[in-house]
Simulated scan of single mutants.
Amino acid sequence: MNPTILAIESSCDETSASVIQNGQVLSNIVATQAIHEQYGGVVPELASRAHQQNIIPVVSQALQKANIAKTQLDAVAFTKGPGLLGALLVGSAFAKSFAMGLDLPLIEVNHMEAHILAHFIDEPKPNFPFLCLTASGGHTQIVLVRSHLEMEVLGQTTDDAVGEAFDKSAKLLGLPYPGGPLLDKMAQTGNPTKFQFPISDMPGYNYSFSGIKTSILNFVKKNTAAEPDFVKNNLPDICASIQHVLIQTLLKKLVLAAKELGVKDIAIAGGVSANSGLRAALQEGAKKYNWNVYIPAFEYCTDNAAMIAIAAHYKYLAGKFTDQYVSPDPRLRIM
């Protein structure tokens, strides 16, 4: 089988469409939503409205760039969840209508599984079983990946996601939204050991980032009270120190899981996998622990439809389709 699939991603604030044929991505169009910058975070209602405006142009561009006619499609895929309910509704409703109009089968995709399967878009591809650290604004998980369709969450955050910790820390430092990438940029010229923050320790492979966020808040308040320009005068070092503690927290449990399970193939996925500090730390881990490390291209780290498309490709081959009664699930989990 050489299926040609149209995939749609609309879980948060990117409207994206991709066309994949026989496992090869032919197009991957992403429309971002700049409107959220003025609010310092994603506003769900505004995100839904922007998806409604963007989805038809984005799908049209994806088909055009792939040079694929609607009649050549074999299936339509969409993100079922997790994500913002209103945003998911726009993508799922469009996909269902599009599939019904063309009498095409429908494929639902778990957003977090798709982040992991983004590793199978390009070479090199990890070998099964492998461990994947999925780190984003909404999730932080260590997943044991046994096959394209068989995954197990070994550990996850018990409160906040690491991506949120990056963004909220950046906001405390006065950096504009989205702050995580800006904090990463500033950290590259700073001293990561200049300031010390505690590394939280949870049972098993679980994470917690609320305590780290509180310690950073208290640190900023205490030092700015004594020196009003403290953050301004020490910004690169503060950013580097914050990034250091967050990355070390992530790696501590990843190293433990890899050691106890005897897994040498290690991957990262999700928006935080674009972080330069995390990428560098994993490369160091590869040398220290003899890992085979897999890091996706930047364009497949953040939310995009190509990852939905590759996940749909494997579900198509396995005959895993859904029906018109399917509904979005904002809290969908990896099963």
Rank of each mutant, 00 (worst) to 15 (best):
S92R: 06
I242D: 03
V231D: 15
L173A: 04
D184G: 05
L106P: 10
N22C: 10
V293S: 04
Q52G: 08
T32W: 02
D167F: 00
I242G: 04
N28F: 05
E123M: 14
K264W: 00
F230R: 15
Y205V: 12
A99C: 15
D160K: 00
V245E: 05
I56L: 12
F78H: 15
N304K: 03
F128M: 06
V59F: 06
I308N: 10
G190H: 11
N67C: 07
F78A: 11
A165W: 00
T214H: 07
L250F: 02
A135T: 05
D122E: 10
L235G: 11
S210A: 08
D103T: 13
S200I: 06
Y294L: 04
L235P: 11
L217F: 03
K80Q: 14
A62Q: 01
P178E: 03
S169K: 00
K232V: 14
V145W: 00
I56H: 06
A257I: 05
M335T: 13
S48N: 13
I310D: 04
K185Q: 08
R49I: 11
I242M: 03
T4R: 12
L173R: 03
D167Q: 00
G319A: 09
G23F: 07
T302K: 03
L256C: 15
T32L: 06
I199R: 14
N292Q: 14
F120R: 07
K168A: 00
T134C: 03
F130K: 03
A95N: 09
I56R: 04
S169D: 00
H139A: 01
E9T: 12
N223C: 15
S215Y: 05
G211P: 07
E260F: 11
A312K: 12
A31M: 02
T189E: 09
I142M: 00
E9G: 08
